[in-house]
């Protein structure tokens, strides 16, 4: 059986000027949480949007393979894609305030998708919405269905977004920074909820985040992105125990860990900033910030296997 989502050598550029995604490959299996982690501008959100075919006009998407349950997504008509989107594959966005429509009630937004994809009555759809709101931990779901987004707190809005994404029982859920706009205590609650739902419903979850703490706690598998490429990919435990790519190593050193902080020591940091990369760029994109770089890094870099399913993109040997 093919994987739930397969992405192979995905490339996205904007008007032929900025190469946002440069040959990203990864798969999401049924029932697994795959985290795409990276800093702003590394192409992780563009990757998510291009899977859902929601890229802005002017963006070009190419891929050697882009398939959902073995079905090629590349040649699908807009109509066929619209049948999948919000139905079999759903997405949760970062900012629940801007992704909910302020002019419609929670109930009407939640039922719209289900009524469009399935032949159900408004009554049935509303019942399902109320069930799901209760499922995501919202008390008094009947009341919430009649409310508008501005009447809900940030944490509640994000729960509504999650419930809405689950309306059609998707097989794949893509969550783009679902907790970044929330407070830490609320973030923990929402992530627990996502992890529980993912396990109970056997969802494939593609979670996009910049936070290595979230990755460590929730991911089955991690792909680290830098400048539009996956530079390292491994099972979560392997990546944290044995990071191979200098960027991954640097990123892990930058994260202050409570209780393990030596206050007089400077934090590990990565010098410089992410470069802007145009089409036709060659070599390792991290070389200007890397302590191990030499002249060979300006040419094509090999992908090494570090045992099992752990691989990384670097001239350094495993």
């Amino acid at each position: 059986m093919s994987a739930l989502l397969e992405v192979e050598r995905l490339e996205v550029d904007f008007g032929g000027k900025v190469a946002a995604v440069r040959g990203t490959s990864f798969t999401v299996e049924r029932g697994e949480t795959h985290c795409l982690v990276g800093e702003s501008g590394c192409g992780k959100s563009v990757t998510a949007l291009s899977i859902m075919d929601l890229l802005a006009r002017g963006a070009r998407r190419r891929a050697q393979r882009l398939s959902f349950e073995g079905n090629d997504l590349r040649g699908l008509s807009d109509k066929a894609m619209a049948r999948l989107r919000g139905n079999e594959m759903a997405m949760i966005f970062q900012e629940p305030m801007t992704s909910l429509n302020p002019a419609y009630t929670v109930g009407s937004q939640m039922t719209e998708g289900l009524r469009r994809h399935r032949k159900v009555s408004q009554r049935e759809a509303t019942d399902r919405a109320a069930d799901l709101l209760a499922r995501v931990g919202i008390t008094a779901p009947g009341l919430r269905l009649g409310q508008f987004p501005h009447q809900l707190s940030g944490g509640l809005r994000q729960r509504v977004m999650i419930a809405m994404a689950l309306m059609c029982e998707p097989k794949l859920l893509i969550a783009d920074e679902p907790t970044t706009a929330l407070d830490v205590t609320v973030q923990a609650q929402i992530l627990r909820l996502l992890a529980t739902l993912q396990r109970d419903l056997g969802l494939g979850l593609l979670l996009i985040t910049h936070d290595l703490g979230i990755v460590a706690r929730i991911a089955t598998r991690v792909s680290v992105m830098y400048a539009g490429e996956v530079v390292e990919s491994a099972a979560t435990a392997d990546l944290f125990a044995n990071p191979k790519h200098p960027y991954t190593q640097g990123l892990l050193r930058c994260v202050p860990v409570p209780g393990k902080i030596q206050r007089d020591q400077p934090l590990g940091s990565i010098p410089g900033t992410v470069p802007r990369i145009g089409p036709g760029f060659e070599g390792c994109a991290f070389r200007e910030r890397c302590g191990f770089a030499d002249e060979t890094c300006a040419h094509a870099v090999p992908r090494h296997n570090a045992g099992g399913t752990h691989d990384f993109l670097c001239r350094l040997p495993a």
């Binding site: 205590t185 992890a195 703490g213 990755v215 435990a237 944290f240 860990v257």
Partner: peptide
């Protein structure tokens, strides 16, 4: 609630209500 980068610990239940 702080999620330290330590795999295997899962997401803690902080026990605060809604």
């Amino acid at each position: 609630s702080v999620l330290t980068p330590e795999p295997g610990l899962g997401v803690p239940d902080v026990g605060l209500g809604d």
